[in-house]
Design a protein around this nucleic acid. Structure first.
Length: 431
RNA sequence: UCCCCGGUAGCUCAACUGGCAGAGCAGCCGGCUGUUAACCGGCGGGUUGGAGGUUCGAGUCCUCCCCGGGGAGCCA
């Protein structure tokens, strides 16, 4: 008999099926025993009575949590069952029976305990839907870019120089030289877009920043795009289209998982329905101050400032035209005010923070050399990057979207450590 | 790096002003023919993070260290 997955049970009502999975939980009421089985696509309740074959009734009592098993039975629609379907069990065959009790129970646990057992925690109730939503977000990004004719490409992860200064880089030995784990693929995408026109990549990036907050990982995934001949305004439109596409895709694709996490899909849809809010940096500072958060003109936005902005608008908001000094060297200056950068950060609603940073890039050799020296960066490691301005330079723009923060926002989970299977944090490298 | 909170049974926590270290869950044994993190009865389970100090007496007070959590800065 061909095995089926729990998410397909609706198509097999009345039929006998084979499920393969793990024992999530069990209950007993004497002569009726209930086994809750999970298989990665969902949970289903099996009902076992003494009429079942061989020692199946006995197994339903004896098997410990997370035993792996095969289970045969007839699918029945039953409103009493979570998920709407249950299985009248004919036979259970254990695949592996754990000798020790599964460390993670169904009751509450502390974060430290769970993080030490992340390899097992990911089997549990909230984690499975969360990781399925992550998958959906990544698919949405790929599908969006493919529909628009972008070429998926790659940037190196091992790099010889910093993108934006060395303090936040992880160094490593590279045959006697120092290499670093990349903190962004952007500079390389700028080169690639001059070859392929419109490009994107999704990959891991690394920040050695000693951040200890719910919004930071030392290893996280970025979806970065870079487009030749695209200017600031078009860049913002592209980002807005992407974010709206992701939300609508995930709501359609993973509604069940969102509901399992008690995330209301309608709230998400309403947040991205209309045009995103847009303010300049200067306006944003005033809004932040009017919400009682102190900041000076010229400061970058801290977490309380971002939260104030996100509360003020209740939908995604672009903050445009930051002072040049608090943004990196590769951003183009605004033609009408050289003290500002042609850039924008996108702040997610509900306090999930900055999910996109983007800009139009410097596109002349003169301006780039000027900015390198202004930022006191050495010229040699950037020769290849300067070359891009020497051979058919064009206006171009791009951005990077933080995958985990986007997943956290969409799934409504407060801490981003749960949005990636094995988060890397300041003091956490295991498992 | 800085600020705040915490570390007691396998897990989550309690233990008044310093006075016999406890409960729920998990485990094991038994009961129950529709359970929903099932329920009911019973049993076992402790170097109170570590070192030192104060005290007749320390889980509780003091000092140092270790570990974890939350937040800040920086960023996505």
């Amino acid at each position: 008999m061909q095995p089926v997955y729990i998410e397909e049970l609706g198509r097999h009502v009345g039929e006998e099926v084979l499920l393969q999975g793990w024992l999530f939980n069990k209950r007993s009421s004497g002569k009726v025993r209930f086994v809750i089985v999970r298989d990665g696509t969902g949970l289903v309740q099996g009902v076992v009575t003494p009429e079942a074959e061989a020692d199946t009734f006995d197994l339903a009592e004896r098997l410990p949590q997370e035993s792996s098993l095969k289970m045969w039975g007839t699918v029945r629609a039953d409103p009493r069952a979570p998920g709407g379907y249950e299985l009248s069990v004919k036979k259970i065959e254990p695949v592996h029976i754990p000798k020790d009790p599964f460390p993670i129970g169904l009751k509450e646990h502390g974060v430290g305990f769970l993080m030490d057992r992340r390899h097992l925690w990911i089997r549990m109730r909230r984690q499975v839907p969360l990781l399925r939503i992550r998958d959906s977000v990544l698919w949405a990004i790929r599908q969006f870019f493919r529909e628009r004719g972008f070429v998926a490409t790659e940037a190196p992860v091992l790099v010889g120089t910093a993108v934006e200064g060395t303090t936040t880089l992880f160094p490593l030995d590279y045959f006697g030289r120092t290499a670093y784990l990349s903190q962004s693929g952007q500079l390389y995408l700028e080169a690639t877009c001059m070859a392929l026109g419109k490009v994107y990549w999704i990959g891991p990036v690394f920040r050695a920043e000693k951040s200890k907050t719910r919004r930071h990982l030392t290893e996280f995934w970025m979806a970065e795009a870079e487009v030749a001949f695209l200017e600031h305004e078009g860049n913002l439109q592209l980002q807005e289209d992407l974010v709206r596409y992701i939300v609508e895709f995930v709501v359609e694709d993973r509604r069940r998982e969102l509901e399992a996490l008690e995330r209301d899909p309608e709230v998400l849809l309403s947040q991205v329905k209309g045009p995103f809010a847009r303010v300049t940096y200067a306006e944003a500072v005033e809004i932040v101050r009017s919400h009682g958060v102190e900041m000076e003109h010229g400061d970058d936005f801290g977490a309380p400032a971002e939260d104030a902005l996100s509360a003020h608008f209740g939908r995604p908001v672009f903050v445009e035209r930051f002072p040049k000094g608090i943004k990196p060297f590769y951003m183009k200056r605004a033609p009408d005010d050289p003290s500002l950068a042609l850039c924008a950060d996108l702040i997610a609603p509900e306090g999930y923070g900055e999910i996109i940073g983007g800009s139009q890039r410097v596109d002349t050799e003169e301006e780039l050399l000027e900015q390198l020296s202004e930022y006191e960066l050495p010229r040699e490691p950037y020769e290849w990057y300067i070359d891009l301005r020497r051979y058919g330079s064009v206006p171009h723009s791009g951005f990077g979207l933080g995958v985990e923060r986007t997943v956290a926002w969409i799934a409504g989970t407060r801490h981003i450590r749960e949005t990636i299977p094995f988060p890397r944090l300041l003091d956490r490298l295991y498992p």
